[in-house]
């Protein structure tokens, strides 16, 4: 049953105008790179891989996973359950032989699939463009493909945790707009307000973009610039994974506790 819910939700999200606009927005760094990249002096798979790691991590930290990327994830994920509750269509699901856990996980994975496409397509376009630019052909493509997958995994892990928190808030608040605002408020407070307090050391670590840098460090070994991001990769990964699992568990509990009067 989860697959029916998942397929329908992914289809609905991909058909939406919102998805197309978000995808176009996320393609912006690729366009910027297209017009502003430096002159290529060395044409090899190795040079391509170094350049790919540098460019992807720069765009990821400064644009894709920054405020705009976070906002995109919040908008997508907070709408998944809240819109069902707000419109009353959750009652259609409750009168069907589908478990509440299937509803939560089906929705979460459909949201994550959409987020993966919104972020993955620009990464892939960037990769293909750079392969062409470096004239490194299939060898270059395979050399950078694992970097592409790693960057996408890191994005999904970090932004997925934000999405899971948004889903939790959406069950509590029941309205997509309120849930989006609350999620954004929470993210803003956690990233920019709390670190201002005097007893937090290295406040930059609270920033999701910074944590992306920490996580990229392990996979992007050719980009030495990432060494400036101090932190334990395993601890960061475990933290984000825990946030996802805890948020989904509480979302499920919220769904069990909730009553649908409307």
């Amino acid at each position: 049953m989860i697959s029916v819910l998942y397929q329908n939700e992914v289809y609905r999200l991909l058909k939406s105008r919102r998805f197309k606009v978000m995808l176009l927005l996320m393609l912006l760094p690729v366009v910027i790179y297209f017009f502003t990249h430096e002159e290529i002096t060395e044409y090899s798979a190795k040079a391509l891989e170094i350049s790919f790691q540098i460019n992807i991590s720069q765009f990821l930290i400064n644009f894709w996973a920054s405020v705009i990327g976070q906002l995109i994830v919040i908008i997508i994920m907070s709408d998944l359950l809240a819109s069902e509750i707000d419109r009353g269509t959750i009652r259609l699901l409750l009168v069907k032989p589908i478990k509440k856990s299937e509803i939560v996980f089906g929705k979460f994975f459909s949201g994550i699939t959409t987020v993966s496409l919104i972020f993955g397509i620009p990464y892939l376009v960037m990769e293909i463009y750079m392969v062409l630019l470096y004239k490194s052909g299939f060898e270059g493509f395979t050399a950078t493909f694992d970097d592409f997958l790693y960057a996408l995994s890191v994005t999904i892990l970090v932004l997925g945790s934000l999405g899971a928190v948004s889903m939790l808030l959406s069950v509590i608040l029941s309205r997509p707009l309120y849930a989006s605002l609350a999620s954004f408020g929470l993210v803003f407070t956690a990233q920019f307000i709390l670190p201002q307090l005097p007893f937090f050391d290295n406040p930059e670590r609270f920033n999701l973009s910074y944590q992306i840098g920490v996580l990229l460090k392990r996979g992007f070994t050719l980009h030495t610039g990432l060494d400036t991001y101090k932190g334990d990769v395993t601890m960061s990964a475990l933290f984000f994974l825990s946030v996802i699992l805890l948020s989904l568990t509480f979302t499920l509990l919220g769904l069990y506790r909730k009553e649908y009067e409307g």
Binding site: G88, R91, L92, V95, P97, I98
Partner: peptide, 16 residues
């Protein structure tokens, strides 16, 4: 879940 395999429901205000 078991019960709803054999139940059809139509709400007062159509939901879709």
């Amino acid at each position: 879940v078991e019960i709803m395999k054999n139940v059809g429901y139509m709400p007062e205000v159509p939901i879709a």
